[in-house]
Design a protein around this nucleic acid. Structure first.
Lengths: 159, 159
DNA sequence: TATTGTTATACTCTATAACTATA
DNA sequence: TATAGTTATAGAGTATAACAATA
């Protein structure tokens, strides 16, 4: 959200992407909160629904750490939307099984997500809408596909 | 970075904006780190340069908290790029004055910012590039102008 | 030895609260 | 009373380390 410079000839792509993604995220969080979900809970729910998937597989899909997945699945279990089931093929792994209530909620949350996206896109002229999505998909697939590794802080062993 | 759903008919605008803004941010951080700057330091530097501005004014421009501005200005002072000067009109306020070295660095950092943006935009076809920027500007100005206030956690007084 | 999931916690980031000096 | 800037720190988020069970 930091304005990267006052130049008017060069569009501030950083600001535009940061601002729009941030505001859309707040809108999405508010809309999903109405049915008691976070974006992560929604993500896990909809990807656990069509196929038997383990926590690690769901973590990869949602680009979460496995420890973040633990708390997300905890929240889904507490809400009665999913349960951990032992995998039949790997006794270390847990399948995340969506409950009936979870499936109903997932349908509603996907409607909410689609509606929030559609509302944003509907605010654009038809021609801009299509090109925006195509250009973002191109950036995400090519030039802005992979994060650059920035130097991380060291982490000491726990006492 | 959480995929919002598997629907192929509805583009996942959340993912596209989150992913592209995140990756661009890592590229920008890496590029600016080569001359010892963070994005915030760059932002304060370039906006302090053309005009006498106080910390509060710079905080508003960069959408930072005033406490975040304190540490950012601390970093600029330690790097010898800016100094705090008392305002001649308000003895509470501090003008952030950019040093000569700071002005040189600001010119270089603005080049870096423009280059990183230009590289991203150059990866798109000409027609997509223009429309992408126009559509993002429209979203940032209209439908995605203002963050929605999500319920905040309470904060107790310190002991 | 490597991997899944878990717990505990170190670390960062952000912003609130409290404070001083001044308006 | 309100505001600019500062300090201290609460709280959230994230991710690393260590571990148990299993591959």
């Amino acid at each position: 959200m930091t304005a990267m410079g006052p130049t008017r000839t060069n569009p501030d792509l950083s600001f535009l992407l940061d601002h729009t993604s941030h505001v859309l995220r707040t809108r999405m969080a508010a809309a999903l909160a109405e049915i008691g979900l976070t974006a992560r809970m929604h993500c896990v729910l909809v990807h656990a629904l069509p196929e038997e998937r383990t926590q690690i597989q769901l973590a990869e899909i949602g680009d979460m750490d496995k420890t973040t997945m633990v708390v997300t699945v905890d929240a889904l279990e507490q809400a009665g939307l999913a349960v951990r089931r032992p995998s039949s093929t790997d006794r270390r792994a847990r399948i995340i099984a969506v409950t009936e209530e979870g499936a109903r909620v997932a349908a509603r949350s996907q409607e909410i997500v689609d509606r929030v996206h559609a509302e944003a896109l509907a605010s654009l002229p038809d021609d801009e809408r299509e090109v925006l999505v195509r250009a973002l998909e191109r950036l995400a697939a090519d030039h802005l596909a992979t994060p650059v590794q920035n130097p991380r802080p060291v982490r000491r062993a726990r006492q």
